[in-house]
């Protein structure tokens, strides 16, 4: 197990190194930031001064080296557009995305797994068929369209909930959060629902498939033969046996939602990092793009590492590798 974790850490370092090269080269390839930074009629001497200031005259590898050097100093550069340190910019927006994503992913888990277990436990019941039909909708209807329908129904027609923005926020640990105010929740609930639907469908399907398989296993038959009640069998046996694929997908979904909640954030005017990255791509704001992509890669690597640790917690057979 220890060896496995060390191996994973080494892999993570390699992945981050390769990722930074690809991102740097890729961002370099798309457009010249001078066109955004300067008006078309700017004179040549100002042009030269700006080029020199941002180091754009140096060879690519030198620019890359400087970038990595600064990165290790904790300096990811300043945004061309906002003229603010990039880190400050991203971390200012991150809490909004984190609370939106965690609410939706955890909501999907807490609602989806029990529904999926029920659908797997009673595959022929009407309620199970209804759950599965809804989950197909969650898969097949595009997110943006559901978002629009939610706004149309709850904000425009019924007028129950606001259609966008974060609402009131409270400072906790020096960061602004919406989840701790009632008004914040009223703003959060629609985008979180919108983001959760797809994940909910996946959780339902995973839990259902796992439950159907486990219910037919000898483990469950043996537990029944010992007179253990169905409720206990599901809580103590089934839930633990189906948890590994769920943990895997939960980790992947968490990462991809954090990185790509863009569509939902745009529709609900949610001021998270998704909106920031879209703006920075449009404005060719290189430092923001770079920092965002590298942070995203780091996020995925970290989540995968945590998922591996969770595996070992869930399945004692994987811990065995540590034993001599």
């Amino acid at each position: 197990m220890t060896g496995f974790l060390i191996q994973r850490l080494l892999q993570a370092i390699v992945i981050m190194a390769v990722m930074s090269v690809i991102v740097f080269a890729g961002v370099y390839a798309i457009g010249n930031p001078l066109e955004v930074l300067l008006p078309p009629e700017a004179p040549q001497d100002i042009r030269d001064a700006v080029i020199k200031r941002f180091g754009l005259d140096r060879p690519l590898w030198e620019q890359y080296g400087l970038y990595i050097y600064n990165l290790f100093q904790g300096d990811l550069g300043r945004s061309y557009i906002y003229n603010e340190p990039v880190l400050q910019l991203i971390f200012g927006r991150l809490p909004a995305t984190i609370e939106l994503v965690l609410t939706s992913v955890i909501g999907a888990l807490v609602i989806g797994v029990p529904l999926g277990i029920w659908a797997g436990y009673r595959p022929n019941a009407f309620s199970s068929r209804a759950i599965m039909a809804v989950s197909i909708l969650g898969f097949s209807v595009p997110t943006f369209w559901i978002g629009l329908i939610l706004i149309l129904t709850f904000a425009v027609n019924l007028g129950w909930l606001p259609s966008g923005g974060r609402g009131d926020t409270v400072e906790v640990l020096g960061v602004a959060w919406s989840v701790f105010t009632l008004d914040g929740w009223s703003h959060l609930i629609l985008p979180a629902t919108n983001l959760a639907l797809f994940k909910l469908a996946i959780m339902i399907r995973l839990a259902r498939a796992g439950t159907r398989e486990v219910m037919l296993s000898d483990t469950v038959k043996f537990a029944r033969a010992a007179g253990i009640s169905e409720g206990t069998i599901i809580r103590r046996h089934v839930l633990k046996l189906i948890s590994i694929p769920i943990a895997t997908v939960f980790g992947l979904e968490l990462g991809s939602t954090l990185a790509f909640a863009v569509v939902t954030e745009t529709i609900f005017a949610w001021p998270g990092v998704g909106k920031l990255i879209i703006d920075s791509i449009q404005n060719l704001d290189r430092p923001v793009m770079m920092a965002y992509l590298i942070l995203t890669a780091g996020l995925f690597v970290t989540i995968n590492l945590v998922v591996d640790l969770v595996y070992a917690l869930l399945d004692p057979r994987l811990r065995r590798r540590a034993a001599p």
Binding site: T219, K221, F222, A223, I228, K240
Partner: peptide, 22 residues
């Protein structure tokens, strides 16, 4: 259920499959 395990119990073929591994 009150009878199973208390008055009639069962042992299966493959102990690898019957005991919960986790």
């Amino acid at each position: 259920r009150a009878i199973r395990g208390a008055r009639i119990a069962m042992v299966f073929q493959d102990p690898l499959m019957t005991l919960n591994p986790v």
